[in-house]
Nucleic acid binder design. Structure first.
Lengths: 194, 194, 194, 194
DNA sequence: TATGAATGAGACTTCATTCAT
DNA sequence: TATGAATGAAGTCTCATTCAT
């Protein structure tokens, strides 16, 4: 196995444990066990716990960024894209605990992480914003809509609803959920005729 | 100073430090210093770090719950209530770091905290949901809207937008922001005429 | 209550707790509670825990010395005296845990206590030895017997037998026990005719 | 070095320090230093101070039991056995501080140790008692002698005399001492002709 | 290269002692 | 005089890191 492959394996193990236990709550031994290697071996690939954490965040962010980018490029309408994004997020929440947790917990050493984390957050926002702008061009979104807020609404609604639903009920979202989210986001909740 | 007052002082100090550093990253001495007392004194009021953390979460949740309840009862229309809620959240994010952080970090010891945390999360969701139902009755929100999702959309959008904005720019939201959020939430982003 | 009376009350409380928990295992608060006073009050009478301990040992030793002296002076024959001594020791073991424990545990800070403790041990030995010499004079004990060893045999046998019996069975010794001890000590266990 | 050998090394270091300073008076670092290892290493072999103490007592008791058993089986007459036992105890007192101290100090956490300690105490008593019964059979000890008391007399006299002598004078017992002890125990101190 | 036994800095916690009331 | 809230030194224990194998 190449050095790079091994690092990736450690990243995946580290991410899993950091997600669950947070930075300070994670023991290097936990990560080593999760990766199925010896404690000392981790130090062959990473200088310190802090470095491993930082690189794990970078790795995770980049991976997530790539996945989201892919997802969004594949959809044709914004509605479809929102559905796809929601599904992707649900999958992520399910697969390795809410990314929210990672993000929030990464604040633990926010001062050091600052740049990396912000950069990622902005990147995902930008990706969604770009889709919004495209959708405005195509007449799918009203021109007067602020793309920043639209982007926040999309991401925020998805995360809040699925986060809560999946944590509370430990059930996966159903197809109907996606429809309702798209509806709320596209048409709002207000009664224009009222 | 009464025993209860002293506990409250420690709660406020503890919350501040836990917010910034997370559970494991916080030293009891940090909290003591923040509260302007000796390390041993904290142990006169709380049996252990874990107990202090749990009670701090309860305290914070209850306080936040009370504040949100007050805020929402004061507004007359849902639009006003959303604005008020957004202002309140912005204030909170500013005042003592995003509650999101607290909540997310509290997951670190989720197993033990379980009930308390879920209860709070559900409580805030319920408070907003009730407002939605009321707004449906009053014809302000469309009847076919799912109140769960509407509630998630409101909370999620506010948190996502202000969280990002305030963390990135460290600036307070402007009045215009509230208008735009209300607009997006009430009317959606879709171009119905398109 | 006079200062001296109060000190005596604290001595009795301290002895009780020190017996059970040893020097390091005893908290000043335990002693204060046992004496029915406040923690700070103990410091009105004793400068430190160590001083209190040392004075408590002195107090206990002197009290025990006085009691043993009394006991031994009252008996007329050595047999009677051994019986009385055994009864007295049994009472002591019962009343406030084996003095052995005190003595042994006091070794914890043996370096500091040295003199006091040794002095007491020697004093009791001397008291018994004097009785032996008297008994030799009166023809009750054989002249060739070494008084040091006789003294050790008396004390050792009593402590070992009752200590074990009372700790194991938590029962008080019976009259017959005293007879048997006296017999073993006076006549030995050997079969001279054998 | 095998794991078991290392544990034994720690046992010996722990016993030495516990003997001198008692349970509460002993620091884990003291034991580590005595064993010539790091503080953390002790925790590789024992979960906690309490566990180490308990296992050390068990180890010590078992070792002592084995030694005493050996000693007693080797002698032919009871007189010889008493001499051997006395020598063995003197050696023990000298070698690693009076076992009495250990036993007595172990009472500090008597509740937890209970079974182990009592078991040992009884075991040694039983070993001696068996020798007494044998000696009665062989006509060396009078038939009417109570073996319990005889056993207590032997152990008690030896411990009391040597304990005091060695602590006071820090000198080893002489050959003559053993003779006198045997004499007192076998023939008693009484003047039968008197 | 891979390992895990060994380490010791640093955390949580206890408790002797102080001191304002 | 009597108290107990407050304190911080010091102990137990954890775990990131090292290094001999």
């Amino acid at each position: 196995m190449s050095k790079e492959q091994k690092k990736t394996e450690i990243f995946r193990a580290a991410r899993k444990v950091f997600y669950i236990k947070g930075f300070e709550g994670t023991k290097m031994e936990d990560i080593a066990k999760e990766a199925g290697i010896g404690k000392g071996t981790v130090y062959e690939y990473f200088e310190s716990k802090k470095q491993l954490f930082e690189e794990t965040v970078v790795y995770s962010c980049e991976e997530q960024g790539r996945i989201i980018q892919d997802i969004l490029e594949r959809g044709s309408s914004l509605k479809e894209k929102i559905r796809a994004l929601a599904k992707c997020q649900a999958e992520m929440i399910k697969e390795h605990m809410p990314i929210v947790r990672m993000m929030a917990c990464s604040k633990i050493i926010a001062r050091e992480m600052g740049a990396v984390f912000m950069e990622h957050n902005i990147r995902v926002g930008e990706i969604i914003k770009k889709q919004i702008l495209q959708a405005i061009d195509q007449g799918e979104v009203r021109a007067e809509i602020n793309p920043e807020i639209a982007s926040a609404a999309i991401m925020g609604t998805i995360m809040q609803y699925f986060g809560k639903k999946m944590i509370c009920t430990e059930a996966m979202p159903e197809e109907a959920d996606y429809d309702k989210i798209v509806q709320v986001l596209m048409s709002g909740i207000g009664n224009e005729t009222g």
